[in-house]
Simulated assay, not measured.
Amino acid sequence: MAHKFLPALSVWLLLVTCEAGRQMPKLSDKKLCADSDCSHPILIARALQDYYPGDCRFIPIRQGQLVYVYSMLKDRGNLFWAGSVQDSYYGEQEARIGHFPSSVVEETQVLMPATTEVKTTKWDFYCN
């Protein structure tokens, strides 16, 4: 009787493991960066609230954390930015760049102007 549940369990495990390592839908075709490689942070922002991501393209943010912003998605009214979270202790969180809504942070320090328009690629929205 327990064998009836094995196919359902296999499908569920397949769905869970397919989220990582696949191309996710693009959030935008262009982004604004400080340079053509988007390798320099544009600004530092502080999280106004906790943010729990809906999928692997996004990063979790806790209220009060500092976020280094590397790019701003150009379409959809600049709703999403990409950056990495700076924890109070460097080793607490693996450094990973991901997207987050710009509405959950406030700019604290501008580092470089975001004047370089760059086309997004599949790697901008790839889940690993």
Rank of each mutant, 00 (worst) to 15 (best):
K4S: 14
L48E: 11
H3I: 12
Q109R: 11
F58L: 05
K74Q: 15
G98F: 09
V16M: 10
L32N: 08
C33H: 08
Q23A: 13
P53M: 01
G83K: 02
L32D: 05
W123Q: 11
N78S: 15
K26R: 15
E94L: 14
K119D: 09
T116W: 00
L79D: 05
A2W: 14
D87S: 15
G83V: 07
G21M: 03
L79F: 09
T116Q: 00
A82E: 13
E19F: 14
L48K: 03
Y89P: 00
P41K: 04
A45L: 06
Q63H: 14
V105D: 01
P7T: 07
L9D: 05
L43T: 11
K4G: 02
C127W: 11
L73K: 11
I59R: 04
T121D: 06
N128S: 05
T108N: 04
V118T: 09
Q86H: 11
E19S: 11
L48C: 09
G98W: 12
A82S: 14
L48D: 08
C33G: 08
R57F: 06
V110Y: 03
Q93V: 10
A95V: 15
C18S: 13
N128H: 07
S39A: 15
N128W: 08
G64R: 02
R22Q: 12
V69N: 02
G83F: 01
V118N: 02
D124W: 11
A8K: 10
T17M: 04
E94T: 09
N78C: 13
D37I: 12
L43E: 08
M112V: 09
I61D: 00
V11Y: 07
K31P: 02
L9F: 00
M72E: 10
F58Q: 03
F5W: 10
T115W: 07
G21W: 05
I59W: 09
D124A: 04
S36Q: 04
S103T: 15
K119F: 11
V16S: 05
R62M: 10
H40S: 08
Q93Y: 07
S102N: 02
H3S: 11
L27Q: 10
N128T: 08
E94N: 10
T120L: 05
F58H: 06
G98E: 08
P25Y: 03
L13N: 13
G21E: 03
K31W: 10
F58P: 03
V11N: 09
D37T: 14
L14K: 09
Y52A: 11
V67E: 01
P60M: 15
C33A: 07
S88E: 13
V85R: 02
E117H: 01
E106Q: 08
M24A: 07
M1I: 13
T115M: 04
W81G: 06
E107I: 14
K74R: 13
V104W: 02
